[in-house]
Computed example of a mutant assay.
Amino acid sequence: MGNQTTWQETITNGRFGGKTVIVTGAGSGIGQATALRIAKEGGRVIAADISKERLDSLVEENAGLDLVPVPGDISTEETVAAVLTAAGGRVDALANVAGIMDNFAPIHEVDDELWDRVFRINVTALMRLTRAVVPLMLDAGTGSVVNIASEAGLRGSAAGAAYTASKHAVVGLTKNSAVIYGPKGLRFNAVAPGPTITGIVANFGSQMAAERLGPLMQANIPTPATAAQLAASITFLLSDDGTNLNGAILASDGGWSAL
Rank of each mutant, 00 (worst) to 15 (best):
N103D: 15
G89K: 06
L55W: 10
I22W: 06
A26V: 11
E77W: 06
L67E: 02
I74M: 15
E60W: 00
A47D: 05
D73N: 15
T24V: 10
A33R: 08
G64N: 13
K52C: 00
P135L: 11
K19Y: 01
M127S: 08
T76H: 09
V134I: 15
E113F: 08
R44Q: 12
A48T: 12
A82R: 13
A35K: 04
F119H: 14
T130Y: 02
E109A: 11
D92H: 09
A33T: 11
L138F: 02
I50D: 00
E113T: 15
I22A: 02
I46E: 03
F119R: 07
A132H: 06
L126Q: 12
S144N: 12
L84S: 04
V110H: 07
A93V: 05
I46F: 05
A48M: 08
T142Q: 14
L94E: 03
A93H: 08
N122T: 04
E61P: 00
R44Y: 09
V23K: 08
T76L: 05
L84T: 05
I107E: 06
E109W: 08
H108E: 15
S28F: 09
E77C: 00
E113Q: 13
E77P: 01
M101K: 08
A82P: 00
F104S: 03
A98M: 10
L55D: 02
G42I: 11
S57E: 14
S75I: 03
A35I: 08
D66T: 07
G72E: 05
T124N: 10
K52Y: 00
